[in-house]
Write a protein that binds this DNA or RNA. Structure first.
Lengths: 181, 181
DNA sequence: CCTAATTACTCAGTATACATCTCTTTATCG
DNA sequence: CGATAAAGAGATGTATACTGAGTAATTAGG
């Protein structure tokens, strides 16, 4: 039961580095936990509806943009297109969303809220706001806007990594001499 | 292209609310996107190792606490115990982690990094730091510490929701008196 | 008008995250 | 000391999130 303990100096150096950058101070850890916590609060406040944060994002986007196609919807909500299809599937199984082929571009599927979907969006609004309030409560009120502004800045400043451009879409570039534009 | 538009006043009110609280200004949306972006940057910087942010968190925690049990490990890293088992499984399949029964409590599994696991932790450190730098770059340097402090405050202030207490653990409570069932 | 490229979607696979149920081990009580 | 309660770990199922491969419809070129 020894382990390779002993005199491995490389490992010791790493340990020192770790001590200087403990998990609890790393941006990645902090951001993951923050997301985790928000999800937990949202789910708790909205548990009577059985709607997750992402589902609610899709629902409110559909409320404001009925008949939007799945790709655009994913761009609005910030999720991958395959994920849009998954979530819409769950929502349409529950009768909250209806999908059909686009009239103008038959490759596209467009989505609408059903009456029940609109009713859920309506009824959930207060719960969603309560979740927000609870989430931000630990921060002094005068810091809350600053916090959200900084998050927005980080998102916008890193926007080129924000959505994976998915697969086929853009990264393609194959061009024949692609007009360099 | 009207839909059931018309005179549904409830729906109109909701639409107004939505306009006042668009998705892009909601804390939940912002935090989810932030997490998404950090993951993307981390994965990009560390792609040569094929290690995800959560896996790296477990690895560095094991580096500092060799022989830790899985429940404590989950508490340190901020993930559920079943998730710990999943992630450790993937890591041990790749030969980075080794598990064995605890000598002191034979119900527990304790985990260690292998030589390869320690080597990966060592080699990944710089990549992880680069991911952090890129992630925080859009924020003016004098705001970065303030941002991380606010995130920490939100996590600590909401700590009662942060980890689900899992199943068996606490929530049990069955005070003597209720043996009926 | 036919073909090639593009675009939108689906399907399969991986990983994280959590809840619930079952099984083993440990601890306690009679 | 044996029955049983309590606790921990695992298995299973759901949801999110993304990648890659493949299919179908549209558009662009010749």
């Amino acid at each position: 039961m020894k382990k390779q303990s002993s005199t491995n100096s490389t490992r010791s150096e790493v340990k020192v580095e770790m001590a200087r950058m403990p998990l609890a101070s790393r941006p990645g850890y902090l951001v993951r936990r923050l997301h985790q916590i928000h999800s937990a609060i949202f789910l708790e406040e909205c548990q009577e509806f059985g709607i997750t944060p992402v589902q609610y994002g899709l629902i409110t986007t559909l409320l404001n943009n009925p008949g939007i196609d799945q790709v655009t919807l994913g761009g609005e909500v910030g999720i991958d297109r395959t994920n849009v299809a998954d979530v819409l599937n769950r929502l349409s199984e529950r009768g909250l969303v209806r999908r059909e082929r686009s009239q103008t571009d038959r490759r596209s599927m467009v989505a609408f809220l059903t009456k029940e979907g609109e009713a859920v969006a309506d009824k959930m609004y207060d719960s969603m706001r309560r979740a927000q309030d609870r989430f931000l409560a630990p921060l002094r009120p005068e810091f809350r806007a600053a916090f959200l502004a900084m998050v927005t800045e980080l998102i916008e400043g890193n926007s080129k990594y924000s959505l994976p451009e998915s697969n086929s879409a853009s990264g393609r570039r194959k061009s024949t001499a692609d007009r360099d534009e």
